[in-house]
């Protein structure tokens, strides 16, 4: 049985969260198939990096350490991964749906003539019978993703090509240690042998990376506002509630587009996916593109003056009324009844 591979994205001095989330998922998939989990890190100054990934259950870690590999450019990374895949022939290969992963994965898929599914929200194994040829397949990777602006959910398979490739956005899968003492083996890619000058037509002249300012994804409580919040000023109420509850403020795209809050707070299909303990949706109608990013929250409270708003269907509590009335009441009660 061939193995499952995860491309781990190296960012300056650490592995991107999305890669660790993918390792967590891939470990479970490998257990199901009874195969190994392999990973690759391409970057510079990687000494000791293995101890950050082995706890996620990596059996074999392929390392390429060279100063020409960081910052990332497409061709050298693609070349090394293609070469590696030709040798190890993975069954499944996963990439983060990030600026890097979405640049790299299609290039590799094109060279290896294999299928690639972008932005999967769920990955499971399942069987398949081809209606035309009658051929039966077991343990194909079902790559499940919203399509068509989120209006449908499609299950995509690659019956005949390997690896079965997919990208997944940050925050869609959960990140969890497999075992803190887990030990795999490190294999070094022969970078000097494989890289040649033709692979460097692109030169990085300058980079400005911003540190992430808000951390909605990790917050246990999210107070999210939509177009119905009405103004930037009304969002202040949401910030106050989030503040006293120890949470963060999220938003729908309509609220972001209206300029009420920054884009980095957008929850949903084209924003971030969250699963907090408590999600309070204020003045959000509940379009699928929004709920795709929050429907797995443990508890959902919807505040909306329209009893027919779709968000009420997935809410544990629907408060029918105006946010201007309700939020101040919540703040007042909380302040009075906790120290």
């Amino acid at each position: 049985m061939n193995n499952i591979f995860v491309y781990c994205e190296f960012d300056e001095d650490h592995i991107a969260d999305v890669s660790l989330e993918l390792l967590t998922k891939a470990r479970k998939l490998a257990n199901e198939l009874g195969c190994k989990l392999e990973a690759g890190i391409l970057g510079h100054n990687l000494k000791g990096i293995e101890k950050h990934v082995f706890p996620y259950g990596v059996d074999v870690l392929h390392l390429a350490d060279d100063k020409r590999l960081y910052p990332y450019t497409t061709l050298p990374h693609a070349h090394l991964i293609i070469d590696l895949f030709e040798k190890i022939k993975p069954e499944v290969a996963l990439f983060g749906a990030t600026s890097v992963g979405r640049d790299l994965a299609p290039r590799i898929a094109s060279k290896l003539k294999c299928g690639l599914t972008a932005d999967c929200t769920s990955l499971v194994f399942g069987d398949h019978k081809d209606n035309k040829s009658g051929k039966e397949y077991t343990n194909l990777l079902y790559q499940i993703r919203p399509a068509f602006g989120g209006n449908i959910i499609a299950t995509i398979i690659n019956p005949d090509t390997r690896p079965q490739m997919a990208t997944v956005r940050e925050g869609v899968m959960k990140k969890e240690f497999h075992s803190e003492s887990y030990k795999g083996t490190v294999k070094h890619i022969d970078v000097k042998e494989l890289l040649h000058d033709d692979l460097f037509p692109v030169r990085v002249v300058e980079r400005h990376m911003e540190k992430r300012k808000v951390n909605i994804k990790g917050s246990p409580v999210i107070i999210s506002g939509g177009y119905g919040v009405g103004s930037k000023e009304n969002f202040d109420m949401l910030f106050e509630l989030a503040d006293i509850l120890g949470g963060e403020v999220g938003a729908s795209r309509a609220a972001v587009d209206a300029g009420f809050v920054d884009h980095e707070r957008q929850v949903g299909q084209t924003g971030i996916t969250v699963r907090p303990k408590l999600y309070i949706a204020c003045g959000i109608s509940g379009a699928v593109q929004h709920t795709a990013g929050m429907s797995e929250s443990a508890k959902i409270i919807a505040i909306n003056n329209d009893p027919k708003a779709p968000i009420n269907q997935i809410a544990d509590y629907s408060i029918i009324g105006n946010i201007e009335d309700i939020i101040p009441k919540m703040i007042k009660y909380y302040k009075k009844n906790t120290k």
Partner: peptide, 29 residues
């Protein structure tokens, strides 16, 4: 095309049993 569409589902909400509340003080409290 190596990718095949196995299944398409329209997005439907699995409606939860939700508790409906009003904006009255006693409900919020």
């Amino acid at each position: 095309s190596p990718t095949k569409v196995k299944k398409i589902e329209n997005v439907v909400f699995a409606a939860k049993e939700s508790v409906v509340l009003s904006s009255d003080d006693k409900d919020i409290e």
